[in-house]
Design a protein around this nucleic acid. Structure first.
Lengths: 153, 153
DNA sequence: CTCTCTTCGCTTCAATTGCAACGAAATTGG
DNA sequence: CCAATTTCGTTGCAATTGAAGCGAAGAGAG
């Protein structure tokens, strides 16, 4: 078996290559890490959100969220306030500066993504979208099954 | 824009989820990291290979290769000898124990991958394969273009 | 041959990351 | 109402990772 033709390997390096392209945009031009980028993305879209929701909607754990949010706050892109109803929680919202930064970064990231995806013939692009959706569904099915079993098979 | 429907994000988390499934196999049952797994894969398939070739055929840099190979050698899975023709180079080869470990790990990994992919309807699986190939090609085209330009646009 | 320049692999040091423990706040059971 | 337990966010510490530097080996010019 050749490594290069092994499906899991092809998937991994392709996803890495694509991701690298986008990181080079929001990383270099806007100084954001991948975690910061994702948080900013969610907070921008949700005008007041708790860290529980952030954790639920990303694959980040609470420590990663705490540290990334800290950095975003230091940069003035988001603000955090203590929830009056449950004082253990923090409510996140985006600042004007954060909104501005995000919209500019998003435009560039989307442009870069479109540049790459634009090179793919429409039929292949549809195939990619379709296949990816199917794979994600299959992965979720397996993860749930494992969770149900509660052990490692 | 919803993060969950943003194509780059879907690609990233799907690839991560799939990869996590496989890491849980070769990681837990065989104690291999992803780098070690990839190196072992290549060395098993090539009965004597230099680190230059290993670097060329993975996305690992020379330090990652050096450290992963060190660990593989400590575990007795590979052996490294100095190339007589160019004494700066190391020649890697797999040991009997390494071959045995790899073949068992590979069978399990492939089984897990097949378990997931088997849940996908054949038509979607073909779409995935086709779309992924197209995306990889597009990424390579962009990377080469950048390299040609020699700068960051 | 000798001197310089490059390449390869390893090591060292700083930065990043992940795990576990902690304090603050809320919930539960009596 | 109060003590015990749970949950949330942060911090401290250890392990992993990345970047720069170093010695050994080879290549090329004179």
């Amino acid at each position: 078996m050749q490594l290069e033709t092994f499906f899991p390997y092809r998937l991994a390096i392709t996803a890495e290559a694509f991701s690298r392209q986008l990181v080079s945009v929001y990383g270099r031009a806007f100084g954001l890490t991948r975690e910061e980028w994702r948080l900013l993305f969610l907070i921008d879209g949700a005008e007041r959100i708790t860290s529980l929701d952030l954790a639920r909607r990303t694959t980040l754990d609470k420590v990663q969220i705490s540290r990334a949010a800290q950095r975003l706050e230091d940069k003035g892109l988001i603000s955090r306030v203590i929830d009056a109803e449950d004082r253990r929680l923090r409510l996140y919202s985006i600042t004007d500066q954060g909104r501005d930064t995000f919209s500019r970064a998003f435009a560039e990231v989307e442009g870069r993504a479109a540049l790459i995806l634009g090179q793919i013939p429409p039929a292949d692009r549809e195939a990619l979208d379709r296949g990816l959706a199917a794979l994600m569904k299959a992965c979720q099915a397996i993860e749930e099954r494992e969770y149900g079993w509660g052990q490692d098979t």
